[in-house]
Design a protein around this nucleic acid. Sequence first.
DNA 1: CGTGTGGGTTTGGAAACGCAACCCGCTGTG
DNA 2: CACAGCGGGTTGCGTTTCCAAACCCACACG
Lengths: 164, 164
Amino acid sequence: MTAHAPPPLPALPGRPCSIAAALSVVGEKWALLAVRELFYGNHRFERLVENTGAPRDRLTARLRALEEAGVVERRLYQERPPRYEYHLTEAGRDLAPLTQALLAWGDRWLLPEPPVTLRHAPAGSPEHSLDAAWICRTCGEPAGRHDVGLQINTPGWDRQGPTG
Amino acid sequence: MTAHAPPPLPALPGRPCSIAAALSVVGEKWALLAVRELFYGNHRFERLVENTGAPRDRLTARLRALEEAGVVERRLYQERPPRYEYHLTEAGRDLAPLTQALLAWGDRWLLPEPPVTLRHAPAGSPEHSLDAAWICRTCGEPAGRHDVGLQINTPGWDRQGPTG
DNA sequence: CGTGTGGGTTTGGAAACGCAACCCGCTGTG
DNA sequence: CACAGCGGGTTGCGTTTCCAAACCCACACG
């Protein structure tokens, strides 16, 4: 399911860029921590407040925005009073590589030891610690920094130089 | 070079987590767009202003914070008046998977077609478009959502349920 | 009837952000 | 020499966003 552009994004300043577009959706404060908790299996507002540390009003605002953007959906689990659980949509679940990249970077550069470890248990393999990287599906090689270049598809925005 | 914790981070609210720690460094507005431009080979202040669209004062603040955090370094390229270029440190270059994850997600879920395409040219292969997937290096399988579990290393923070 | 719980909204103040204008040290150019 | 221009910021000021704490409402429990 490669659903494209559910809500048309407002125009962004600077270079036309998917990174900027993505950040306009998940780049606000607490958004990715809420997503993290949904990955971790916590779907109720109170749990999100406790586990993220976000102020309640901010969390409300973020969840509404994420819902609007199609990352999160609310599911009624009780009428009267209406109560909702928050779940990731397919687009939301597809944020897994992003949160894992953040986790890996924080583990490597910021914290002396990881507070959370990811375990990988694909069907038919023994469980092991997850050690994921970006692998090019075309050639099977990892996407390093020195062998990745740019092709700018927007005329006028090709200001660039060698990577570094 | 796995340099750990150059500046001691202030305590964060919520669950102890490398994702939160990482976001405290690169999660502020414009930070990752500045990093993007450095990846793209633009190292001067004016270029960063133009290509990110960030206000000049915000960009100044972000670059100082990123320098403090050890993600960016300033290099004097001219004395009198002193002028600096901004370059990624090793920690900064290690953000590549993060920006690639953002790029991939934005391409897939937000924009009708990618404004920037990554090209992959590993040694000994013809250049081709990068089509990266998040693959576990231990077992070679993609890191899906249904086969990734958690191991919480901090007692008292194990509130969780099944993933989804 | 009093207390507790889940899921918020309100309020008032602090911090971050955004924009435009300004500044400073140079390097041309006439 | 006067003046314009550029790179790289800094200043001032108004607007959002953020935060913490308090409040609220609908129920359930005892």
